[in-house]
Nucleic acid binder design. Structure first.
Lengths: 140, 140
DNA sequence: CTGCGACGTGATGGATTCATCAATCCGCGA
DNA sequence: TCGCGGATTGATGAATCCATCACGTCGCAG
């Protein structure tokens, strides 16, 4: 029942709990937006994500419970920002891992295909897709 | 239905999926063990975690599906290891974030308490806990 | 004080995930 | 071939999470 992210229990439990807080596309999206801009009003988040206010609010509540974001009231609007810069680090590292995984699994698929065709593992273009963009260092 | 971690969908969905794969204490534990030792037989994992074989195997299966670990059969035993060193990075960064969060929330609690007592925010010892260990750079 | 716009909270079905146990697969030695 | 230990898979109820919608709160304008 204790919703605290921090307690005196084994660290791997706390860690798993942290990942649970991140385990939803909407919440990842929110954190990525907050990583890019220091402080963002809820109205902007609604615009960026296209979600219904209450839905988004629930996810913000989850992020607050996990101590990943902080809210600040100014006038009639609420502004959110990352609670710690390390949150952005975490997203960056996870992105790096993902890139590695995607590249590798794609190669494996390609080699499986070409193996039955007797070709080297070179061809970078996916069988039925547009040609790969020259590189896209930004993106979400 | 597609269980691939990688597809052509928005990156934040893939990222959320990755975190979902990490969002369980047992799986975090497994990855931490694998981060410490290059290659570990299932029997050792059973010993380290104290889990029933089938239970552990299911979590290993999840980790495999997410491309976080790889299995290798040698003789009658199966050996697991991290699929990419970046997985260990991710765990390290998450740990750093967690440390930050725990330290900070603890201070907040302390200051809330001392605020009603009229004391500065100095005292590092929690009201009803054992004194903080001088620092523990290892641990899980 | 009354209404309104911006956010948050509660409650409810529907979908996922988890833990447990039985059944199966795989390599090897008798 | 038979059987056995090591490891995985399948199936089931319990627990948890998610999306939707109705309602409640806060601050301000009229």
């Amino acid at each position: 029942m204790n919703e605290f992210a921090g307690a005196q229990r084994p660290l791997y439990e706390v860690k798993a709990n942290l990942f649970k807080g991140l385990a939803h596309p909407v919440r990842v999206r929110i954190l990525e937006v907050l990583s890019a801009a220091n402080t963002v009003p809820v109205s902007d988040l609604i615009a960026d994500t296209g979600l219904e206010a209450s839905h988004l609010s629930q996810h913000l509540s989850v992020l607050r419970k996990h101590n990943l974001v902080v809210a600040e009231r100014r006038a009639s609007q609420v502004f959110y920002s990352l609670a710690y810069p390390q949150v952005a680090d975490l997203l960056r590292v996870s992105r790096a891992l993902l890139v590695e995984i995607l590249e590798n699994t794609r190669q494996q698929l390609a080699s499986t295909v070409t193996a039955s065709a007797g070709l080297p593992v070179q061809p970078a273009s996916t069988p039925s897709d547009s040609p790969p963009p020259p590189s896209d260092p930004e993106s979400t």
